[in-house]
Simulated scan of single mutants.
Amino acid sequence: MSQLLHDLSWVLPLRNELLTPIMQGFTWLGYDRFILLFLPLGYWAWNKPLFLRLFILVAVTALLNAFLKDLWQDPRPDIGLRMDHEVGESFGAPSGHAQIAVVLWLWLACESRRLWSWLGCSLIVLGIIFSRLYLGAHDLEDVLLGAALGGVTLLLFALVRHRAWWREANLAWHLLLVVGVAVAAQLGWPGTAPHYVPLLAGMLVGVLSGYRLEVRTLDFQVPARVWRRALVALLGCAAFLLFQALLKRLETALGLEPLLWQSLRGVLMGWFIALLMPWLLVRGRLLLAGRAPA
C-alpha cells in the first residue's frame, strides 16, 4: 500500500507533448498568482458575498496547508521526475494545489447548485489534482491528504457560516480573531513561518474592514448585463496588475522589515479589492450603487 501511495512510475508513460501543456495549465490554476487575481475579479464582476466567503475559505485553508507542510516535513517525489520547478524546496504533504482546489471550486459549485457547475468545477479539481501527479510535484499520498483536508474545511465552514455568533459578531471580533490566529501561527510555526502568513492575515483584515465600510457607503451591486461584467473584469484585471506594480515600488521606497511590510501589503491589497476598486467602478458607472456614493 505504501509503495502505491509514493510510486510515480506509472505517470511516466502518460507524458507526451500534447498532454504536458494541458497539465501545466491545470496546475497554474492552483498557484497564488492565479488565485489572487481570480478572487477579486469574481468579487467585482460575479458575486460579492460569495467571493467574500471564498476569500476567508482560501486564506484559512492556505494557512493550514502551509503549517502542516512544515510540521510533517514530508519530502516531495524525486526531483528527477519533476516537471514543475516552482515548488522550490517546500515539502510535499499535504498538497496545497489539491486542498485549495477542493475548497475553491467545490464551494463555487455548492453555492451555484447547478449540475453544469458541479460537473465543470469537479473536472477542474480532478485536472488540478492529476496535474500535480503528472508533473511529479506530488505523490498520491500528498494529493489525497490535501483533498481530504479541503473537504473537511468545507464541511466546517458550512456549519459555522450559519451560526448566529459568527454572522452577527461585531467586525472587531472578526478582525481580532484574524490577528490572533496570525500571531499564534507566527510564534508557534515549526521553523520559520513563510512570508504569506502576515500577508494573508493583512489581506483578510483589509477585505473584511473594507467590505463593511463599502456596504455602509456604496453597497455595490454587480450588473446583470454580461458585457458590463466582462468590462468590469477586464478593467479590474488591468488595475490589479498595476496596483501590484505600485506596491513593489512602495516596498522599495519604504524599506520596512519583511514581517511588517507583508502585513501592510496585505491590508492595502484588501482595501483595494473591497473598497477602492468598487468605488472607482461605481464612479465609472460600471457597478451599480445600492446607496448614494459619498
Rank of each mutant, 00 (worst) to 15 (best):
G206E: 08
W116K: 12
A98L: 02
G191T: 08
E89T: 11
L50P: 01
L149V: 10
A148P: 02
C237M: 14
F55L: 05
L187C: 01
G150L: 01
L218E: 09
A45L: 08
E89L: 15
R249S: 15
G42D: 03
M203G: 11
P21I: 09
I273V: 15
Q73P: 00
S112Q: 15
S131T: 12
Q73A: 08
L39E: 01
V183P: 05
I124T: 08
A169V: 00
L68W: 04
V179C: 09
L286T: 09
L200F: 14
Y31I: 12
I129C: 07
G236A: 06
L235N: 00
R228G: 09
Y31P: 00
D74M: 10
C110R: 13
P77L: 03
G80P: 05
Q221I: 13
L234A: 15
R33D: 13
L133G: 04
M269P: 02
R283D: 11
T192G: 05
L171S: 13
L64K: 06
G206Q: 11
L4C: 02
P278I: 03
G30W: 07
A147W: 01
L280V: 13
R167Y: 07
A172L: 09
G266E: 02
A109S: 10
N170D: 09
V267D: 03
P13N: 04
L268F: 10
F130D: 00
L52I: 12
M203P: 00
P94W: 02
R265L: 10
W166T: 01
V103Y: 00
G25E: 11
A185P: 01
V87A: 15
L18A: 14
V222W: 08
A193F: 10
G188K: 01
C237E: 11
L63S: 01
H195K: 11
V179H: 02
A158W: 14
L108W: 04
L29K: 07
A109T: 07
I100P: 06
L247F: 00
E89R: 15
Q262K: 07
N170A: 13
C110K: 12
Q244I: 08
M269T: 06
G284S: 10
R291S: 09
L176G: 15
